[in-house]
Design a protein around this nucleic acid. Structure first.
Lengths: 346, 346
DNA sequence: TTGAAAGCGCTAACAA
DNA sequence: TTGTTAGCGCTTTCAA
């Protein structure tokens, strides 16, 4: 059994091996396996041999031949961050349904993001989803150079040819503030993340607009920005806020849930009760929000929806739907929980 | 300029285009780009042309030729879960340092895990990291069939030829209980996840052993298992525990942090103070643990370390280090915080 | 319906 | 140092 030996020797069985064993040409084998025009009899025989041999088509060879590899790459600032983890998970689900694989990379700084994009040579991926914290020129150029359909989760200059799925965080802050006002808040402080990021800029804008709309004055002493959108970075910022403002606020809007938790901690340590003495609203509505005590009111910016939409847009564009690429926005939704609800005190 | 037109037409510039423009053979071009033996002059010229043309080597073609594609796949139960997100992040970092890409897939049920493994045809990946909740026969078979170096995060039958990096969750529970005993706990309840999972089984075992070691009786009324390792699934389980045990415990060990948060919630709703009336210890030491109020004492089972180790083991084995594949165990570490520390009441 | 052959882009023998 | 050639595994013309 020379043939058997040949395939058993090294590596995986190739279509050539299958063809040989089945006694047909590789072309016929390919057609039989692929569904093309082959007599029912041969098709069946080839399929059987393939199964016996444990043949699996070589994805790389097929990709080289066909020009498409069935992989999408996604670049997030931090895969461990619950928000991005959820986005990633949503994207993966969507891709899996289309039988594609997801490559995940992490990069924060524009230079690193650009490098990460570049690291995927063209032909290694069919498409790209990028979540840039700071979509600077550098990043946009790398996106163009990538030469694959791309969707950005976040904002993009209106002139950009790539797809985009954004959260309307301005409206999100608005929701939070309207709610707090309705709850009777008089002076609403804002704990932001870095202002040189898109989310940071948008949320600050939303804060000013919403205050304006509510007829409240903007007081610089009531605004503080953490160096990062993290719990650790927010703690000192909130300490500073407390000191600087002489505690003259009765509500806090935090730029995300992690920062909101930092607020809960600092307030708790300072003996300020939530929601009794101060209301708190976060953003992103991570799973943590409902698990906290008090549970955290939070604005759902649709992390999951953004991931799903981005994936769908990309897939549609890959299928050749020219209109698929667009600039979409997900509508935020306020989820009210304990941290912003004044309890009755019977 | 026929050549220019040729490359500009369709698709990306190939090495053939570079070679033509530079006036050398493709072999020479390849060598010049690749570092092989080419005269400094030609090398420089070719490199220049490549740059001008924006040439990027086709990863797929290279993979087909070389047999290795520079990609590792990782299958986790749930990418959105903070523990797995951290593991994934750690793995990604390790791989990036070795200039490899990470494919992420999600699957919980053994059948789905097996299918997910199979979906990566061989040659599509160089290696595989799997985090199976239930490492049943089906999964092990799929692992064997994958025909690539594999490391399992979790436990594996000692006979398995794959690498494994496990957490010693038995010892982890031991740590928790020893600590609680030292804090004066008399009756320690245990809220587990599903017992038909590896973690569930191990943790229950650890609980019994630790009680034994501490000279405490095992009371079935003090043990309850949630249907899943989630907050939502744990809430009713803990309700049941409270009822069934008539609150006759003064400490709770939870099988993970999510379950611990559920405990905090249920206790809080029942008017039982933590740590005043009841101590609570979680497991996994997720970021949430330090953010909670009270902050949660938790056993760090080394999610990040397991990810890093698994990646390192896999990379070493890919580099041809035959001894790389082993069954390793990460030592758990107790992180004491407020939820288990009786405060002095001055 | 089938087979022979070309070619996807690249690297690596082997010659020159 | 360079060029020629073969071949990785597959799909797809083009003939038969």
């Amino acid at each position: 059994m020379a043939l058997g030996a040949e395939q058993g020797m090294a590596g995986l069985p190739t279509i050539t091996a299958v063809a040989q064993v089945a006694g047909v040409s590789v072309a016929t084998a390919s057609r039989a396996l692929h569904g093309g025009g082959a007599s029912a009899a041969t098709a069946e025989r080839v399929r059987l041999v393939a199964e016996q041999l444990g043949y699996r088509p070589n994805a790389v060879a097929r990709a080289l031949q066909g020009g498409t590899i069935g992989q999408i790459a996604m670049i997030v600032p931090d895969a461990a961050n619950p928000v991005y983890a959820r986005m990633t998970s949503a994207v993966q689900h969507e891709l899996a349904a289309d039988d594609r694989h997801l490559l995940v990379a992490q990069a924060q700084d524009p230079a690193d993001v650009a490098a990460a994009i570049g690291r995927f040579g063209p032909s290694a991926i069919d498409g790209l989803i990028v979540v840039p914290l700071r979509p600077e020129q550098q990043v946009l150029e790398a996106l163009d150079a990538a030469r694959v359909p791309t969707v950005v989760i976040g904002s993009l200059p209106p002139t950009a040819v790539h797809g985009a799925v954004g959260a309307d965080s301005r409206a999100g802050v608005q929701l939070a503030i309207d709610h707090l006002v309705a709850q009777g808040a008089q002076r609403i402080a804002f704990v932001n993340g870095p202002v040189d990021t898109t989310p940071g800029r948008m949320r600050l804008e939303g804060y000013r607009l919403a205050l304006d709309a509510a007829g409240m004055d903007f007081d610089p002493a009531h605004v503080v920005a953490a160096d990062d959108f993290t719990h650790a970075a927010a703690l000192p910022a909130i300490d500073a806020l407390l000191e600087r403002s002489a505690r003259s606020f009765d509500a806090i809007v935090a730029a995300n849930d992690l920062i909101a938790f930092a607020a809960l901690r600092v307030l708790s340590d300072a003996g300020i009760a939530v929601p009794g003495d101060c209301l708190v609203v976060g953003m992103d509505d991570t799973e943590l929000a409902q698990m906290a005590i008090p549970s955290l009111t939070s604005v759902d910016l649709g992390a999951e929806a953004r991931g799903t939409l981005a994936a769908q847009q990309l897939l549609a564009s890959l299928r050749g739907d020219a209109d698929a690429i667009s600039h979409a926005t997900v509508v935020p939704r306020l989820v009210v929980r304990e941290s912003s609800t004044r309890r009755d005190r019977p």
